[in-house]
Amino acid sequence: MTEQSTYDFRNSALQAIRIERDAISALENRIDDHFIRACEVIMACKGRVVVTGMGKSGHIGHKIAATLASTGTPAFFVHPGEASHGDMGMITSQDVVIAISNSGNTSEVITILPLIKRMGAPLISMTGNPNSTLSKEAVANLDVSVEAEACPLGLAPTSSTTATLVMGDALAVALLEARGFSAEDFAFSHPGGSLGRKLLLRVSDIMHTGDSIPTVSEDTTLSGALLEISRKGLGMTTVADATGAMTGIFTDGDLRRTLDKSIDVHTTPMRDVMTRNGRAIQPDQLAAEALNIMDELKINALPVVDKSGTLVGAINMHDLLRAGVI
C-alpha cells in the first residue's frame, strides 16, 4: 500500500470550480447588442452556420456546431487549417461563419479571414480580446474573456473554454426560442435515441390490429372472455357492439374483483361485469402518452379507438417496452 498523499486535492478542485463559476457569471453582462446582432444575422442566414477554431477552441466549436444543428440552426464545423487546404469550398456566401479564438489572433483563423470577407459571408467572432484582429473584422463579437484560467499556471484553457461553451449554448437557446423550435422538431434531429422514440412513435406504429385485438360482445360469457384474454395475451379484452364500437373493457384486475363476488363464470355475460366507458387512446397519439395513461391508472393495456369510438387496435406495456418507449 502506498503512503496516502497529503496534497489537498479537494481544495484545488473547489478553487477551479469557483473560478469557472465566476467566469460564467460574468457572461450575463455580455448579452448585449453584439449578442442580439449575432442572433439577427444567424436568423437571416439562408445557408448554414459554419463554426471554426483551433485547438481547444476547435473542440468547443465542434460542440457549439452540434448544439446549433440539433436545435434548429443548421451548422457544421470546419477546421481552419484544413480550410486553407481545400475546405474553404465548404463555405458559401449564403453562410454565416462563427470564428472562435481566445486571443482573437490565432494565425490559422486569421489566414482565412480575407477569403471569408471576399465571399461575403458574415463573420461572428467569439474572443477574449475585443481589440483583436478577429473581433474587429466581425459584424458582432461575443465577448468570452475571463479574469483567470482555472489552471493555476494560467496556461491550460479552462475557464475560457467553459465561458465559450456557455456563450454558445446561450446563442443556441436564444435562436431555438426565436424559431419556435418544438420538442417534436428536436426529436426529428434525434430519431435514434430514446427521446426520439418517445416524441415520434405513434400508437398506430406498434398497436395490435385485426384478429390480434382481443374483443368479445356483451353477450359473451365470462368464461368465453377469459378464453379470449388467454388467446390474445394482452391481459385484457375489449367489449364491442355489432358496429365495432367499443362499449367496455375487461382486464385481469376486473377478473380478480369478479371472482371475489363468487360469480358463475359460465353464465354471467360480459355486460354485467365489464367496465363501461373504459379509458382508451387514439391511434395518432404518441406512444409515450399511452405509457403515461397506463402509469396513471396502474393498468397494463389500452384499447385503441378512432375518433368515432370504433375499436381499431390494442396496446400493452410489453409493446411499449419492445419499442423502447420505456
Rank of each mutant, 00 (worst) to 15 (best):
A240Q: 14
A75F: 05
T92G: 10
D169V: 01
T237F: 03
V216W: 01
H190W: 07
V41F: 05
P283T: 05
T127W: 11
A26Y: 05
N131A: 12
L199A: 08
G233Y: 03
E296V: 00
E177T: 14
T106V: 02
S107C: 02
L134W: 03
K136S: 15
G168E: 00
L195W: 08
G180T: 09
E147K: 15
L123D: 04
P114R: 11
G233L: 08
G224M: 07
I293Y: 11
H190D: 05
I36T: 13
S160N: 07
T106G: 04
G154T: 11
E149M: 12
G233P: 01
F186N: 11
H62S: 09
H266W: 06
S125R: 08
R256Q: 08
A170E: 01
L171A: 00
C39T: 10
D33H: 15
A242M: 04
G244R: 08
A314Y: 04
C45I: 07
I36R: 15
I293E: 13
L176Q: 08
T220Q: 09
L153S: 13
N102S: 12
S70H: 10
V49P: 01
P191M: 11
P269D: 07
F186V: 09
S204H: 13
V216F: 00
T215K: 15
S204Q: 14
L321W: 10
A172W: 03
N11M: 11
V239L: 05
L123T: 06
N300W: 00
A290S: 12
S204Y: 06
P303T: 06
K307T: 08
E149F: 12
A280D: 08
V41S: 11
K232L: 03
M88R: 04
G248Y: 00
P122I: 02
D260F: 10
S223N: 15
A225C: 14
L68M: 12
D32L: 14
